[in-house]
């Protein structure tokens, strides 16, 4: 199983040469690698050409805007930026704090400067929409709804891991270009979601100074009932009533890849890599961002196929753990065990 990641190290000419040399039954694997490699090169070229479209701050820059319960950026007003006093608005202060902690986490732990590693200005829009029950990343900014307490949902700024989750979608956009869909044999959307949950949870643990064992591994405690969350990384399927997340590959939820089914269930099957990470981090011990987090971040930083499947990503994390900590090190074994526990044998 070495072919799926050949594109990390081999130039396209060598891949094409290899195509003429491998046995007939392996030609398809090399051909697929060439296609993935060309897709990644195309994506890098596009992202590179787009960088001039985003204003670069030059140094750390975070600004929070009030959308006044509309979905209109033009009528939004700036309420708090870096070095400003606290705003007279709880959501604005929560969003600022969450994004500030997230920036500091990425800089202090990974030496990363903002979303694009080039100090792109971080923009958060609070009071987005009318009782809007969601938070999202639109490719350039984050938007947070107020929720509706009458329906048991709080403001999405109340949960620091949600801040980290959304900003990490931006990091993934710049580092891997994982596409936003899933089917039976490709899982880039669920991996994209899982990476946001992993770093969202690490940011919460970093803010609370918790070890992997102490952490609750819950994502999105945005419900007025404090016992509920959107997702439970340690025990998928138990975060709330009717939680649809599977804990093992045998229970993978295969949904149509369309707009009516969460693009193939990107928020459903993300629990499989979530649990693998959580188990590896607990097995390694200590602060999860120090070792397991480093492995996942370095793997994300590498060349991931834009239509990556769980197995290929698992293999990348295993190889990264070996590179960082050594063959058959505690970390290397913990990563393998984590993936095996969710039914992914590498």
């Amino acid at each position: 199983m070495k072919y799926p990641i050949l594109c990390q190290i081999m130039p396209p000419d060598l891949l094409k040469q290899l195509l003429g040399q491998v046995p007939e039954e392996e030609k398809n694997i090399v051909l697929r690698t060439i296609i993935i490699d060309s897709k990644m090169r195309e994506r890098r070229a596009i992202m590179g050409s787009m960088s001039s479209m985003f204003p670069l701050a030059g140094e750390k820059s975070i600004c929070i805007f009030d959308s006044h319960n509309t979905k209109d950026v033009r009528s939004s007003t700036k309420v708090r930026c870096l070095n400003d006093d606290k705003a007279d608005d709880l959501s604005a202060n929560e969003a600022f704090h969450g994004l500030d902690v997230t920036y500091n986490f990425y800089e202090n732990i990974f030496g990363r400067k903002s979303i694009d590693n080039n100090n792109m200005s971080i923009k958060g829009y609070v009071h987005w929409g009318d009782k809007y029950m969601n938070a999202f990343w639109d490719g350039a900014k984050m938007c947070y709804g107020d929720g509706d307490p009458n329906l048991g949902i709080k403001s999405f700024t109340a949960s620091i891991d949600v801040m980290g989750h959304e900003l990490t979608h931006g990091v993934t956009q710049y580092e891997s270009g994982l596409e936003y869909w899933c089917d039976e044999s490709h899982h880039p959307g669920a991996l994209n979601e899982s990476i946001s949950d992993v770093f969202g949870s690490l940011i919460k643990q970093y803010a609370l100074n918790q070890t992997a064992e102490q952490a609750d591994w819950l994502i999105g405690q945005i419900f007025t009932d404090p016992n509920l969350a959107l997702r439970n990384m340690r025990e998928p399927g138990t975060a709330r009533p009717n939680d649809p997340q599977p804990a093992h590959m045998r229970d993978y939820v295969n949904l149509p890849n369309d707009e009516d089914h969460d693009n193939g269930g990107v928020h459903i099957n993300s629990s499989i890599p979530n649990k693998a990470f959580c188990l590896a981090a607990i097995d390694i011990g200590g602060y999860a961002w120090e070792k397991a987090g480093q492995i996942w971040y370095k793997a994300l930083h590498g060349d991931i196929p834009t239509d990556c499947d769980f197995h290929t990503f698992a293999q990348l994390t295993l190889e990264t753990s070996k590179l960082l900590f050594g063959n058959e090190s505690r970390e290397h074994r913990a990563v393998r065990k984590g993936w095996e526990a969710v039914g992914i044998r590498i």
Binding site: N134, W137, G139, E166, H169, T172, Q173, Y180, E259, D260
Partner: peptide
């Protein structure tokens, strides 16, 4: 058309 360029967690409406 669906959004491009890394957007995530948006809601689809029909």
């Amino acid at each position: 058309r669906p959004p491009t360029h890394g957007a995530a967690d948006y809601i689809n409406y029909s």
